[in-house]
């Protein structure tokens, strides 16, 4: 979980919603799947951070969930993007591209 680049923590934090949108966009997922998907990346995070974020994204109307029975244990919440969530993802992608381009040009 520890990331050596603590100086970039704010940057990662700001992009976590973007990363989460991308994970959920692929298929409807359970919170633990999201964590597992992010675990091997720079965006590795924990329930304590992800759950409040998912709740906020749901309040913002970006995602939605449905209960699904699991083989073992209690039913789980499976998250998927709403239309607004998809729109936000596309918008964020475009913005991200623009930032990258800008950064490249500034240095050139």
């Amino acid at each position: 979980m520890e990331n050596a680049d603590d100086k970039f923590a704010p940057l990662r934090k700001g992009l976590l919603e973007f990363a989460t949108l991308k994970v959920i966009a692929k298929e409807s997922v359970y919170a633990a799947d999201i964590l597992a998907r992010l675990a091997s990346t720079e965006f590795a995070t924990q329930e304590g951070t992800l759950y409040p974020l998912l709740s906020k994204m749901r309040q913002d109307g970006l995602l939605d969930y449905e209960w699904q029975e699991s083989e073992a244990g209690p039913p789980r919440k499976y998250y998927r993007l709403t239309a607004k969530g998809r729109e936000r993802l596309a918008e964020t992608e475009r913005y991200w591209q623009r930032i990258i381009t800008t950064l490249r040009r500034i240095g050139a």
Partner: peptide, 8 residues
């Protein structure tokens, strides 16, 4: 689990 992030 990690501490619950209040910022959201």
């Amino acid at each position: 689990m990690g501490p619950v992030d209040p910022s959201a």
